[in-house]
């Protein structure tokens, strides 16, 4: 096995008396989709917040390609190759879809302390932004203000922004949430195609999608990892059935 791209060791976080991340250790390898599942309130989003740098863990270590990232700022992690999408869509509403993606390209290509020259006219930025939009099938909506995109298109844009960062790791928080069946299928196909280029940590409630896509699945319940394994192992795991899957799987 290759060295993990991302490794969490004994991560712990509580809000007041509520322990939301309770000694979580897991790893993510290049080329795999590692799904993180668990009931609402299990602490999945909070875990992504800690990995991406939105929240600081109370204890534990986050290693990215062997480097200690635990105390690094969100922006530095992003520039080092850690991209995330948000459960609640987070885009720049006043910018066009293209500008949203170009902003991400800009963050990794040269200095942004450039005070002259129209950013909108930089073909190098626009071309790469357009590539990212095309990967999620949004190229025909490039010029549209992001605020006026449909919900599903915003989810696609969210993913395109992450891709435009050319990251090594993608942290995706419920990318299929609220999308129609057709859009969900399309996004799933895209994720499957993307697998080889990244390590993807995928939070998703759509169980058929998770079991079809994931190489490994970890199950979180009340802040604690109760199981990690292949889809087959997880499906067969009695504890997981009780805690989460129920009759679904």
């Amino acid at each position: 096995m290759t060295e993990p791209l991302l490794e969490l060791r004994g991560l712990r976080k509580s809000f007041g008396g509520l322990v939301v991340t309770d000694g979580v250790s897991l790893d993510l390898r290049q080329g795999e989709i590692h799904a993180l599942i668990g009931p609402n309130g299990a602490g999945k989003t909070t875990l992504i917040h800690q990995i991406s740098g939105t929240l600081a863990p109370d204890a534990g270590v986050i290693l990215f390609a062997g480097r200690d990232f635990t105390r690094l700022s969100m922006a530095k992690r992003a520039r080092a190759g850690l991209a995330r999408s948000f459960q609640i869509t987070s885009i720049v509403p006043a910018f066009s879809a293209l500008e949203n993606a170009a902003l991400a390209v800009q963050a990794r290509s040269g200095s942004s302390f450039r005070f002259f020259g129209r950013a909108n006219g930089e073909t190098a930025l626009n071309d790469q932004a357009m590539e990212a939009l095309a990967e999620v099938g949004l190229e025909r909506r490039a010029g549209v203000p992001a605020a006026t995109l449909s919900h599903g298109e915003k989810r696609q844009l969210e993913l395109a922004i992450a891709l435009a960062m050319r990251p090594r790791v993608l942290l995706l928080d419920e990318p299929l949430a609220g999308t129609g069946a057709e859009e969900a299928e399309r996004l799933m196909r895209i994720l499957g195609d993307l697998r080889a280029r990244f390590g993807i940590l995928l939070i998703e409630h759509d169980m058929p999608a998770v079991f079809a896509l994931a190489d490994r699945i970890s199950v979180l319940a009340q802040g604690r990892l109760i199981a990690t394994g292949t889809p087959g192992e997880i499906r067969a795991n009695a504890v997981v059935r009780d805690a989460y899957l129920g009759e679904e799987a």
Binding site: S52, A78, Q106, S112
Partner: peptide, 25 residues
């Protein structure tokens, strides 16, 4: 406002978290 600098400034005004998440302070 039209420059790279201005784009980051305006993005941070509209959505600070997103701006940080793509790599800007």
């Amino acid at each position: 406002l039209n420059s790279r600098f201005g784009r980051v400034l305006q993005a941070a005004r509209e959505n600070e978290t997103r701006t940080r998440a793509v790599g800007f302070e």
